[in-house]
């Protein structure tokens, strides 16, 4: 289990052994329920109990903007920020030839269908990770999306808010300098 080392595993085991049997059964049922009920949203690929997910069905969501992310967990991170009100599309990874992940392993056809089938999508925000592979994935999608007549944007890269320039790494500073913008825009 990710994040569970040997010590933590022992603590959890002893805790469960000491706890009343019904607590362990409740935990077992909860794990079983997660596996049975949670699945990928048929539209965006987000993890949900009910498909389409609450974001796809949200009446207050901006249906004209789709934000493309690598994994469903990225949606939670963007939602926590509370800044974005559009829809999402989960790719299920990023292009990585060395790992054997090519375009056919991602949900690209689903994205193109959503954008191209006249559902009113006007902008696609490419929010793949700011890594070499994430960048290549964004570029690949850009090539496919532009002919469909939508606005294609890329999330900004640079220094983290509250960070200290002195402690930032060279690659991040170089990216921030390359992507600098006119003051006040």
């Amino acid at each position: 289990m990710p994040g569970i080392g040997r010590k933590t595993a022992s603590r959890l085991t002893y805790h469960l052994l000491k706890a009343p049997p019904e607590d362990a059964q409740r935990l077992a049922r909860a794990i079983q329920a997660v596996k049975e009920r949670v699945r990928a949203c048929e539209r965006c690929g987000n993890l949900t109990e009910h498909s389409p997910c609450v974001i796809c069905q949200g009446a207050r969501r901006d249906q004209s903007v789709v934000c493309v992310v690598e994994e469903a967990s990225d949606i939670a991170a963007i939602e926590r920020a509370g800044e974005y009100r559009g829809l999402y599309h989960v790719l299920g990874g990023r292009l990585s030839p060395l790992d054997g992940v090519g375009p056919s392993d991602l949900t690209i056809p689903g994205l193109l269908a959503r954008v191209g089938d006249g559902q009113g999508v006007e902008e696609v925000v490419l929010a793949t990770n700011p890594s070499v592979e994430g960048e290549a994935t964004a570029l690949y999608l850009h090539k496919l999306l532009v002919p469909l007549g939508v606005r294609v944007t890329r999330i900004a890269r640079g220094l983290p808010v509250g960070g200290d320039l002195e402690y930032a790494d060279g690659v991040t500073i170089a990216e921030a300098m390359q992507n600098r913008r006119e003051f006040g825009t």
């Binding site: 292009l95 030839p97 060395l98 890594s131 070499v132 592979e133 994430g134 960048e135 290549a136 570029l139 690949y140 090539k143 790494d169 060279g170 690659v171 170089a174 990216e175």
Partner: peptide
């Protein structure tokens, strides 16, 4: 850091080619 090659992600043929050499 000696050389940052993030730019390879901004050219698909270059990215694919560099991946081939790495592999």
């Amino acid at each position: 850091l000696l050389r940052n090659r993030q730019g390879l992600g901004r050219d698909l043929v270059g990215f694919a080619g560099a991946s081939l050499l790495a592999e």
